[in-house]
């Protein structure tokens, strides 16, 4: 219990610190807050372009697609807000070119994975989360339907699983730095892989389908939760998703500790 309280205190203090930084440099926040939702607008234009040519896209109406993308955007932005900064810094910490050395992180009386990969917040993403939530509401309002409590619960549970998948994906990519001298592409690769989550899961077949629907289920970010919300997937599938995501998380954690053995410190 004491350990949990310490972790909670760590996250709370980090958040307080980031909010203070935000008030010290509000320009950066506002610039990011206004420009980042642009990519949501780009995708909305793509949705309008697609539905200018068809009325049904793999069983999704235009408003279903808005819900799908809104869900994807909200969960992606939440992941960026919570994990992005620390995970982005990790490459330089491993290489020893950051102000913060990984040695320092490993010596703290807190779980090394937790400390090295979370606890620094990118608050401008709040606008993207709101944009995503707004798109979900827009889709629901324009095409009203009956949704029960269980469907809503399943929706949020899948979002929680999606958050873990997005985290694990970036975490593994960045941990690869223990094995490669230089791998600048991690962040871009992470963002691109998430891109598979922007579309219905039925879009992907064969090996690609297995990869993005089961092995690294990025479709949990949009398509799967929306289908739960609309009551289109059996609840039994939740067990499979839970097992896959748990396995991914524990594998990534194992990979982190395994890779740490390879880490050789220089200067700190």
């Amino acid at each position: 219990m004491g350990r949990l309280r310490r972790i909670f205190r760590y996250y709370l203090l980090s958040l307080k610190f980031d909010v203070k930084t935000l008030f010290a440099y509000p320009e950066a926040f506002w610039m990011a807050a206004f420009t980042q939702p642009l990519w949501a607008i780009v995708q909305m234009i793509f949705i309008e372009t697609l539905y200018g040519q068809t009325s049904n896209f793999l069983g999704y109406s235009k408003y279903d697609s808005y819900m799908l993308y809104g869900t994807y955007k909200a969960i992606q932005s939440l992941a960026v807000m919570i994990f992005y900064l620390r995970l982005q810094d990790l490459t330089e910490e491993i290489r020893g070119t950051s102000q913060w050395s990984l040695d320092m992180m490993l010596l703290k009386p807190i779980d090394s994975q937790l400390f090295a990969t979370s606890g620094k917040y990118w608050l401008p993403e709040l606008t993207n989360i709101l944009v995503g939530a707004g798109m979900v509401m827009y889709g629901l309002v324009n095409e009203p339907r009956m949704i029960n409590g269980l469907q809503i619960l399943a929706y949020f549970y899948v979002l929680f699983l999606a958050l873990i998948v997005v985290y694990v994906l970036y975490f593994v990519l960045q941990t690869l730095l223990f094995w490669f001298d230089y791998l600048q592409v991690g962040e871009a690769f992470w963002i691109r892989m998430q891109g598979f989550g922007k579309y219905p899961r039925e879009l992907y077949h064969g090996g690609l389908g297995v990869l993005v629907n089961i092995a690294i289920p990025v479709t949990l970010m949009g398509s799967v939760p929306v289908e739960y919300l609309l009551g289109r997937i059996p609840y039994t599938m939740l067990a499979m998703y839970t097992v896959v995501v748990a396995a991914l998380f524990f594998l990534s954690r194992w990979f982190w500790f395994f890779s740490l053995k390879r880490y050789s410190s220089f200067s700190s």
Partner: peptide, 27 residues
């Protein structure tokens, strides 16, 4: 010196267009 990085950049760059083509094929 960083050939692996270059190859990964190319794969990364190809992901979005592949998805776009799949989407248009559905349409």
């Amino acid at each position: 010196q960083y050939r692996a990085n270059l190859v990964l950049w190319i794969i990364e760059g190809a992901i979005a267009p592949v998805v776009m083509v799949l989407a248009w094929f559905v349409v």
